[in-house]
Design a protein around this nucleic acid. Sequence first.
DNA 1: GGCATGTCGAATGTTGACATTCGCTGATGC
DNA 2: GCATCAGCGAATGTCAACATTCGACATGCC
Lengths: 224, 224
Amino acid sequence: MPSAPLPKASRRGLAQQAADLIREAIFAGHFPPGSPLREVELAASLGVSRGSVREGLAFLEREGLVRSAWHRGTTVIDVTERDVEEVYAVRAALDRLAATSAQGNATADQLTELDTLVQAMAEEIGGEASGARLLALDIAFHDLIYAAADNRRLDAAWHAVRSQIYLFQLRRIALGYEHYRARVVAEHHELATLLRSGDRETLARRAEEHVDSARRGLLTGPHP
Amino acid sequence: MPSAPLPKASRRGLAQQAADLIREAIFAGHFPPGSPLREVELAASLGVSRGSVREGLAFLEREGLVRSAWHRGTTVIDVTERDVEEVYAVRAALDRLAATSAQGNATADQLTELDTLVQAMAEEIGGEASGARLLALDIAFHDLIYAAADNRRLDAAWHAVRSQIYLFQLRRIALGYEHYRARVVAEHHELATLLRSGDRETLARRAEEHVDSARRGLLTGPHP
DNA sequence: GGCATGTCGAATGTTGACATTCGCTGATGC
DNA sequence: GCATCAGCGAATGTCAACATTCGACATGCC
């Protein structure tokens, strides 16, 4: 996942570092959905104490990547059809608000950056497309919209589903991503255009439809 | 055999208990917005260790009630106009989704319970209305809608703003709540009716407008 | 054989001590 | 008089040991 630039990264505490490493391990497939995340094991593996690992896991739970139960440990979330439906329903609602808030609120620089990202997607597809890189650009595009919306609560809600979306898409991409490749550029280009100058209601509808398109891409084809 | 002092006390862990107590203290006004929540102080006050308090504070941060910064401690959130705008913008988006999801998904029992809550509001107003009790019924009403929506991610997002809404409204109510009293019953009655049998688009719009009405109620009148 | 129960092990929950960081204060130099 | 910086104190961050809980297996009774 494209992590934000790290100007003060080293001063973020071991818990955050542990969370980052565990998150990466989950994305890398080292901990498949449903597998347990044992604190002692992780503490030994990461070279930090159990307390820091515990705090890091709590942070990942806030992102929705893992689930914890009283005295029953922490496990990676499932990736059932219902889970996908839940996440994308919430994301559609959030994206709708983010897009309409960002409209008229985004700076010129931010709008330009959106175009740059869309162009990068197009170039990625032109060459030998890497699904993972395409996905990173996709997420970065939406990160930018949420940043332009300039609403800390909205951004927090976005972060509570962002990692899950990344996990879902990553797993789907591993099975092929022609469906993804086919629509990414056009849809994001349209969103950027509508954001710059478009009917507010149309933008809201399109933002929702974009999420629905991504959801359908996840649920079609081979299932895990 | 000495009977246990707290028979069913700790099935949820000390951290959760600590979070509950601190949350209540914040709502009670013991910790006004912006005031620091010192771990050692709370640990001594609650009779638990700092670790548990720390975990409880992390949970409250998930609810948006407090904010933490690296080596700078935890403080109660501010209640500026911008904070209110942020929370209610997100809540409008979530309520819209919750209402439309609950429509056609709610059980008969849940719909009946909604009516019961609306009637309880009306009775509360008929007698000597207590703003706090009215607010509790209001929140319970929306909790029920979110429960009917049956989406764990949506419920999590709701819980990330619920406590903030409670705090905002509590502080506003302390300054008088005629404006609140005037609209509560009618608006919730309409929502319950639309939920049972109403146009989906109308329901979505009304759910958003209901939140906007609450937001305006918060921002009018005397400001803290 | 099937079900209730007791015991055990492995994991989480909790704690107090130790290390680190940050803001403040006051001495210091210009 | 004012800016700078070193030291100080108070708070948070980290750790390793201790206590508690739950699931699984074995055991015994019916």
